[in-house]
């Protein structure tokens, strides 16, 4: 058993476990996109970044616990790093609902990078699912650098694929975000912000089901002057 402190709380966990597992044991939520308990840790999305006692930033899913280690999971530095990561991920995959929700939770309000809609963040979950759980080895990474992508050998229908759909099931960015009433943009209006501006009617209106903006709380009225434009969770809504 290894003893360490996460956010000042002592936790004991078996040797070889990762920092992420130790934090989860304590009930501390660390965002991840490329981690799944049934698959090997890969450390691709870097969202689970945590700060060690010596100031290093490491990915919690791939860092094994050490005796006496001090870890901070939500320090200002970590949060800054996470916000930057979300911004970078959004720039290659603005269509993902998971990413948009993360952006809203972390107050990421803009994307300063060139947006290319790749519909994939190369997290490798589907590749590991296919290889480790389905034992099929039908898909994998090809090419290198900015040309890297996931496909089958020779881009042809795979002979070993059993059409199980595990890759789609596990994909963190397949679920498409809603566009709401806004024009297409890299960051959505985040109607799903944990603290909506319209709590009394939020549940009834179910605006996340497509009726966004009906009550008018989160949408600027075109007849209203700019100074009265409403805000969502404290931030001005761009229409």
């Amino acid at each position: 058993m290894t003893k360490l402190r996460i956010n000042g709380i002592e936790v004991e966990i078996e040797e070889g476990a990762s920092l992420l597992e130790a934090a989860q044991q304590l009930g501390i939520e660390i965002p991840t996109l490329c981690f799944h308990p049934g698959l090997s840790a890969y450390g691709a999305c870097r969202l689970c970044v945590v700060e060690l006692g010596d100031g290093r930033l490491v990915s919690a899913c791939t860092y094994p616990v050490q005796e006496g280690l001090r870890v901070r999971t939500h320090s200002p530095r970590v949060m800054r790093a996470r916000r930057m990561l979300i911004e970078l991920l959004l720039s290659i995959c603005p269509s993902s609902k998971r990413l948009q929700d993360l952006a809203a939770e972390h107050q990421v309000e803009r994307v300063r990078f060139a947006v290319r809609d790749e519909r994939c963040i190369l997290c490798g979950l589907c590749v590991r699912m296919c290889a480790e759980q389905m034992m099929a080895h039908a898909i994998g990474f090809v090419n290198r650098g900015y040309r890297r992508r996931i496909t089958t050998p020779f881009d042809l229908p795979s002979e070993v694929c059993r059409r199980c759909g595990g890759c789609l099931y596990i994909c963190p960015v397949c679920e498409v975000r809603c566009q709401g009433v806004e024009a297409p943009s890299a960051v959505c209006g985040s109607c799903m912000t944990p603290a909506p501006t319209c709590p009394p009617v939020y549940e009834d209106l179910a605006c996340y089901m497509g009726a966004a903006g009906e009550c008018g709380t989160c949408v600027r009225n075109p007849r209203m002057p700019d100074s009265h434009s409403p805000t969502v969770a404290g931030r001005r809504v761009r229409v």
């Binding site: 290889a131 080895h137 039908a138 898909i139 994998g140 990474f141 090809v142 050998p153 020779f154 070993v160």
Partner: peptide, 8 residues
Amino acid sequence: IPLIDLYS
């Protein structure tokens, strides 16, 4: 070895 690994 899986063909996809070789292709990678």
